[in-house]
Amino acid sequence: MIDEFTSFLETTTVAAAIRQSTLLTGFLSGLHLVGMTLIGGSALVSGLRATRAAFAEFPVPDVTRMTRRGIAIGATISVVSGLLLFAPRASTAIGSGYFQLKMLLLAGALAFHFIIHRALAGRRNASAAAMRVSGAIGAALWFAVILAGCSYILLEG
């Protein structure tokens, strides 16, 4: 079933257009990185507030109103561009160890963020030290996602 799905994706007009154009592929890859930069910058600013390293005198919502939007917009850009980059090479990607690792790490980073980090951030008595440890683990997971993505593109792309 997965084979049929990846074959279908690869034969779509959009996938064919992307596969035939280095310019389009490069542009989408750049957009993917723009999305990630938005997510990363937003997460950093939120993290600085959560650990009270910056803007501690401002209520959390004042700081995170825009960072949440940044993460949402960045994630949208990353997911859409990622899917468009995946479509032309879906079967190759699915079979790649680096791609599988990236997706696994991505799932892990997201799970850590939504299950552990946000739960910790939601506690009134969460210490700055605990937030820093949680932030550091999250950052390590996201760095691993980036490294796996680079490995996939550079070693198998």
């Binding site: 990185l33 930069t37 990363g40 910058g41 950093l44 825009m66 760095f143 680079c150």
Partner: peptide
Amino acid sequence: PIVVAIHIVGLTMSAGLIAFFDLRLLGVW
């Protein structure tokens, strides 16, 4: 790949944070 990944992390930190200063300059954050 490792140096590229580090380059991307540096970019995320610098450009990502600069973007928030730019948002303050724009009066939206």
